[in-house]
Computed example of a mutant assay.
Amino acid sequence: MRLDKFLCESTELTRSESKRLLKAGSVTVEGIIVKNPACKVSDDSEILLDGAPLNRVGFRYIMLNKPVDTLCSTLSGTEAERYPSVIELLDVIKSDRLRIAGRLDADTTGLVLITDDGQWSHRITSPVKKCSKRYRVELAMPLDHSAIEPFAEGIQLHGEKKPTRPAQLEFISDQEVLLTIHEGKYHQVKRMFAALGNRVTALHREQIGAITLDPELEAGEWRYLTEEEINSI
Rank of each mutant, 00 (worst) to 15 (best):
G154W: 09
F171W: 12
Q156E: 05
I124L: 15
L196C: 04
I155C: 07
V29G: 02
S126A: 13
L157W: 08
P215T: 13
C39W: 15
L98P: 03
I148A: 09
L203D: 06
H187F: 06
P84K: 05
C131Y: 02
E228R: 15
V29R: 12
L64D: 02
Q175H: 12
R165K: 15
P53F: 08
I62R: 04
G58E: 10
D50G: 06
L3S: 02
L22F: 08
T180C: 12
S173F: 08
E46P: 05
L111Q: 00
A147V: 12
H204Q: 10
E79Q: 13
I172F: 13
S232M: 05
I100L: 02
I208N: 01
H122K: 10
A210H: 13
V92Y: 03
T70P: 00
K94R: 13
A38I: 14
L98D: 00
V177Y: 03
Y61A: 03
H182L: 04
I208L: 09
G51V: 15
E170L: 13
K5P: 06
A210C: 08
N65A: 05
Q119E: 11
M63C: 10
L113W: 10
E229W: 08
G154M: 07
L179T: 10
V200S: 03
T70S: 08
H204C: 11
K19M: 06
I114W: 03
Q168F: 14
D96N: 14
S146Y: 10
F6D: 03
P127E: 02
S126T: 09
V137D: 03
S132F: 01
I47H: 07
I114A: 00
